[in-house]
């Protein structure tokens, strides 16, 4: 409140001073400078009237402007809050879904065990229960690691992106689908090869590998996968493109959210956290990741990473 009052007084004072300054300046200018012949004559009443109008106008402008800015800020804040709220809600629903199945299975297994009469298949049930518990533990661990990654310190050392991409392609050759896809790595040589970028080599490897792994997983035999890299002096762009079935348009806005599974990914194995991980890693490097996809044509993920982050 005090600040506002001070602001108002300062404003009025400033306006008066400004008008006074102009008046004196004009008078003196007319007297001392023969070239500057403009003279302003007015009664004192007119001056007061003009000054008053100026003050009222500037006050009005400030008040209206402030209100408009406040309103816009509030609106964008509210919509950001709402968006955050919605994405949390979606996450909790998905988490609920992921937890429900293994828990329901464990319940059923326990019921089976308590109603069991003979010594039949005890080991089988124990093994199945262990598998469900491991599935739950894995989920919890992955979520926790993703959260950790958002704040833990990452390495900032020069990384040779070209050799890293070579390594990623090499590592993916053990993927069961690798032999039935055509995987091409296209790296610039002229006028110069890719520059080294500053970052965490292991995390970048993980991000690139995840995208290539996805491409291998969701494409069909005979499909083409291209990994392309380029640079523009300030950032390196890496594209991982495929001629696969593409991602449904309805899924596209959500694929980077934790535990989201698109229509194509239903029934495919995976944690539902791969793309969230990619996005977190890229963000930690000060970069961005975008996706474009057309049903039955394919998908391209574009990573842009600053060279000196």
């Amino acid at each position: 409140m005090n600040r506002r009052r001070f602001f108002g007084i300062a404003l009025i004072g400033f306006s008066l001073l400004a008008i006074l300054g102009v008046a004196i300046g004009l008078q003196q200018g007319a007297a001392s400078n023969p070239v500057f012949r403009l003279q302003v004559r007015a009664d004192l009443g007119t001056w007061i009237l003009l000054g008053g109008t100026a003050i009222v106008l500037s006050l009005l402008l400030v008040v209206v402007g402030r209100n408009v800015v406040c309103h816009l800020l509030q609106q964008s804040l509210a919509s950001a809050q709402h968006e955050y709220f919605l994405s949390r809600l979606r996450f909790i629903r998905r988490l609920d879904h992921e937890l429900k199945n293994p828990l329901a299975t464990i319940y059923a297994q326990l019921a089976y065990l308590s109603g069991r009469t003979g010594g039949d298949s005890l080991e089988q049930v124990q093994g199945d229960m262990l598998a469900q518990v491991e599935r739950l533990s894995r989920l919890v661990a992955h979520l926790r690691k993703l959260a950790e990654l958002e704040e833990q310190a990452i390495e900032r050392l020069p990384v040779d992106v070209a050799s890293l991409l070579h390594e990623v392609v090499e590592a993916s050759q053990v993927h069961p689908n690798y032999a039935a896809r055509r995987v091409h790595l296209l790296l610039p040589q002229a006028p110069w090869p890719l520059p080294a970028m500053k970052g965490d080599r292991d995390l970048l490897w993980l991000a690139f590998y995840n995208l290539l792994d996805n491409a291998l997983k969701f494409t069909r035999p005979g499909d083409l996968i291209e990994i392309r890299a380029s640079e523009n002096g300030s950032s390196v762009t890496i594209e991982i493109a495929d001629t696969g079935p593409g991602i449904a348009e309805d899924d596209l806005p959500y694929i980077f959210e934790e535990l989201y599974r698109g229509a194509n990914a239903q029934g495919c194995e995976g944690s539902g956290l791969g793309l969230a991980l990619v996005q977190t890693i890229v963000k930690r490097h000060g970069g961005s990741v975008k996706v474009r996809s057309r049903p039955d044509r394919g998908t391209v993920f574009t990573l842009s990473l600053p060279i000196a982050s």
Partner: peptide, 15 residues
């Protein structure tokens, strides 16, 4: 050491 363990990432250790 890394604070995360993704199955595919064990080669980071080898490097």
């Amino acid at each position: 050491v890394w604070g995360w363990d993704y199955p595919v990432a064990t080669r980071a250790v080898d490097v």
